[in-house]
């Protein structure tokens, strides 16, 4: 599927006067969501930066119908909305959750897991800025190893929780990773997901200039570097088939990857470990392990081979 930007809606989805910080990846991502899915969408937004970005009512900085909801309830509120639309014969409305990494992997995880297990017909997007940014940069379970936050002053001691893999284990129809650095890839994935019925999950990497401590002009670049260094592989899992996204394929080969230091040195949150080779090595090992897992998944869930499907069928 090739995305022709000219054929996407030419509407203003993110309005002037919204309350996002300069270089915010969330406004970028939200724009792509609406460009991909059009207007037959309702958004469900739990507590987080996007609750604030909307600005002060009765106005909204996001041109979309939105149900704001308490932190731990995004997936369940979306479930209810979809049930209502179905009960009223409006089956074609896309109910889309837009939640941060905390709202997804931590406080909101129970509701997410429940909705995924029930295969609710919703699209769940985790906009992952790798910490609790709205409260001022505290660590989440999705903060990566070594990153400074205001609750891990010397760097986080644990690696990032792998939510997309956990969702694949739920046996849902669609799981993908995306990055705000590659809008057309993200839009393609949203459009593909929108044609599938059932629970769909997209994990969107969203580098936050404020929390990651980089120049707000570099959001897209940092989002691309995460992919180019092999740290954040882009892939899709559809109905038991796993495949790397075209952009990410070449990074299977370690020699094609950019050195991780290029990614780390742009970000103040890693400043304290730039002169510690053993710490950088740990991150490199993490990348190696990530790709080992990807290879296993590619093999197990290769298109046409049906092995992954068999694994799930056997369970």
């Amino acid at each position: 599927m090739v995305i022709n930007l000219r054929k996407l809606p030419d509407k203003k989805y993110i309005m002037p006067g919204n309350a996002a910080c300069p270089g915010c990846p969330e406004t970028m991502g939200l724009r792509y969501v609406k460009m991909a899915l059009g207007d037959n969408v309702v958004l469900v937004i739990p507590a987080g930066c996007s609750s604030v970005i909307q600005g002060i009512s009765p106005y909204s900085g996001i041109n979309a119908p939105i149900l704001n909801i308490v932190f731990a309830a995004a997936a369940s509120a979306a479930t209810g909305m979809k049930a209502a639309f179905e009960a009223m014969g409006k089956d074609d409305v896309h109910v889309v959750v837009w939640a941060g990494d905390g709202g997804t992997g931590d406080i909101g995880f129970q509701a997410l897991s429940g909705a995924a297990e029930r295969d609710e017909d919703i699209i769940y997007i985790c906009v992952d800025n790798e910490a609790y940014m709205n409260t001022g940069i505290q660590r989440s379970s999705l903060t990566p190893y070594g990153a400074w936050t205001t609750t891990t002053w010397k760097g986080k001691k644990e690696h990032k929780k792998n939510i997309p893999m956990i969702l694949i284990s739920h046996g849902v129809k669609y799981v993908a990773t995306a990055s705000v650095g590659y809008p057309t890839d993200f839009i393609e994935k949203l459009q593909r997901a929108s044609k599938i019925k059932g629970f769909r999950y997209i994990h969107l990497l969203a580098p936050c200039p404020v929390g990651w401590r980089f120049d707000p002009a570099l959001t897209a670049k940092v989002a691309q570097l995460a992919v180019e260094t092999g740290l954040f592989p882009l892939y899709e899992y559809i109905n038991g088939e796993f495949k790397l996204s075209p952009i990410a394929k070449r990074y299977k080969d370690p020699s094609k990857r950019k050195p991780i230091i290029e990614y780390l040195k742009l970000q103040g949150r890693y400043r304290h470990l730039l002169d510690k080779p053993e710490e950088i090595k740990k991150i490199e090992e993490y990348i190696e392990n990530t790709w080992k897992l990807i290879e296993t998944l590619e093999e197990s869930f290769a298109p046409g081979k049906d092995r992954g499907k068999k694994i799930f069928d056997a369970l």
């Binding site: 149900l67 309830a73 509120a77 209810g80």
Partner: peptide
């Protein structure tokens, strides 16, 4: 928590 959020979402719609 999800039960009430679900019916609240449904009622909002």
């Amino acid at each position: 928590h999800s039960a009430l959020a679900t019916v609240f979402g449904a009622a909002s719609a």
